[in-house]
Design a protein around this nucleic acid. Sequence first.
DNA 1: GGCCGGGGCATTTTT
DNA 2: TGCCCCGGCC
Length: 742
Amino acid sequence: MTDFLQQLNDNQREAVLYDAGPSLVVAGAGSGKTRVLTYKIIHLLQSGYQPHSILALTFTNKAAREMKDRIASITDHYLTRYLWMGTFHSIFYRILRREAQHIGYPSDFTIYDASDSKNLIKSIIKEMQLNDKIYKPATIQSRISNAKNALVTAKAYAADADIMQYDERCKVPLTAEIYNKYQNRCVKAGAMDFDELLLQTNILFRDNPAVLDKYRRQFRYVLVDEYQDTNFAQHLIVRRLSEQHQRIFVVGDDAQSIYSFRGANIDNMLRFKDNFPTCRLFKLEQNYRSTQNIVDAANSLIKKNTGQIPKTVFSENEKGSRIQVLSSYSDYEEAYLIASKIIEMMDGGKYKASDFAVLYRTNAQSRVLEEAMRKRMLNYRIYGSQSFYQRKEIKDIIAYLRVIINPHDEEALRRIINYPARGIGETTVNKLISAANNADASLWEVISVPANFNLQINSGTLNKIGTFYQMFRDFRLQSAEMSVSEIAGYVVRNSGILADLDGDLTVEGMSRKENVQELLRAMSEFVTMRREEGNDNISLADFLQEVSLMTDMDNQKDDKADKITLMTVHAAKGLEFDNVIVAGMEDDLFPSMRAKDNPRDIEEERRLFYVAITRAKDNCFITYAKTRFRNGAPCVSGPSFFINDIDRKFISFGRDVELPQRTAYITFRPNVTNAGWDSETEKNIEHETENFHPGDRVAHNKFGTGEIITLETANGDAMATILFRNAGTKKLLLKYAKLKKI
DNA sequence: GGCCGGGGCATTTTT
DNA sequence: TGCCCCGGCC
């Protein structure tokens, strides 16, 4: 513990030890950013800072957890328990719950996740009888989100002439009104969306100097990870907390800012000095992750962007091999090519499946890749797919729990008021909601005393509402007596959910049931873990607080399993892999078609590409396909101009031997070495060949039936790798093999 | 109230 | 191609 400083290079150590004022650490990719942050905290602890006086903010739960674990493994375990380390959202949720009375919220207020917000916006648009083709819920949602991130409240939004004019020009002049209604409904429901957490924190600190002062004195040191990703709301919270004592330490990399579409503002980092004039700038420029070639290639790429903090990232690792660019004729073949490449490298014995990541720009690209992996019997895991807590059956149960904690939670209530079906249908719910709106009450208030609201609902339905209300009275009473997992089990049994699941004997139904079991297990595990940490009174609200801010990334159960990683480039930020394949490097795909009119967006896409490349430790591959199924139709595309942004000397272009080619192409394309660099000449080739393709089922005289895995050329002859059902894998020259397509 | 099929649609998304 | 939403139908 004493000589941890030995494990740092000079720049890292200097940043860790510097204690005379605000610090901005610009940390190049792979330069030991997390290490510096953890050691800084350890250093602070050793210098006498109490754990609870250190506030360390991250963007993901995972980052916080990993940092905590690292600190715990180096220092005393108990210390980390009292650190205020977590995501912006979780830390300030905690504070807002504690200070709820100052902002007019109940302390058990709940969180609306993105889909709750969207549903609420949808229903408001409907209630206002607006056309949802013009007032697109997703667009309105992002307008509201951006406004909140910039600390523009509904009132300020409507009062801002520029915004109003803009909305007018976009033909959505009533956006301000939707925002206002949305906000009122959230307040009525005792709920905040993600952005509201940060907005309300600012309001809390702005309007309650005593509260702000309390936290300023508590958080004697403020640290922020990934500072380039902060939005204005986050930046201002950080500033408010640290401007007095100036003990602030932020780390980030402007070259990896890829979330501006979510409100992240790189200027927070670039102009850090304006806010903290005495700040000292530290640069971490030695990359410990990647080969020299990868670092140099990435540098040559990012140089094409303008306006960044000057830095020279370098590597003293091995020189390494060039980035290989590989082309295919279709997305389908690209996927096979990638699978083959992975198999080839695994066969070399140096790598296992978990040493590979396939990164892509859009989630839609995962499907073909997945298929190829499956066919080639490779283990893989796709990230970014639906997270456990997003599944319907889980959300349903969570909704019950949310209503127990906060019955005014309209979105949760709506979700379960007729699930399982209990005869309270859409028509009835609409009547209840409009009664609530008219009386400025919450949906729950209407349900509790329907008689007060002059409802046009028949007595049979009113009875059903009464039964539903009584059920929740019971749940609420029981929850006071039971542990977190007991109450969940009680709800599952007594709400009709269990009966509903039991009635479903399909495969999906069984898996839903397993997921419910898993949730109950996770809940008791949560209680046990909290007990071990010394917290005895674990409330249901505590559990909900945790799960409402959890994402897919936090829930990797088989983390240790040996699997290939498939994910978007965005999701890969902060991770590293021995071998990275960046797939689909094509025009209009990467950079995204939507970015091409805007130089700023192109620069962000280029940073995204930079992030992708710098995930690789040993080898990086870039692949592109000349045709790809996009939105249901085949489309022709060329290689992305981003490939040309990388200096030629760091790249090699795959020789055709390495490409799984359709045999016919070989005669058509004598020079595949610089494949695709010139514009396409053979768009119609698809129709001119009736040959073998990877994936084709074939029959062989001796080996029986099998499937073509890859096609390649060996000394000018087409050779197929075929997986035979009974004879295993064989490599055969097509001109001798006499294969028959079946 | 729930199921089926047609039409419209389709970046990225730490929380 | 596949998902989501809506309208029509039972």
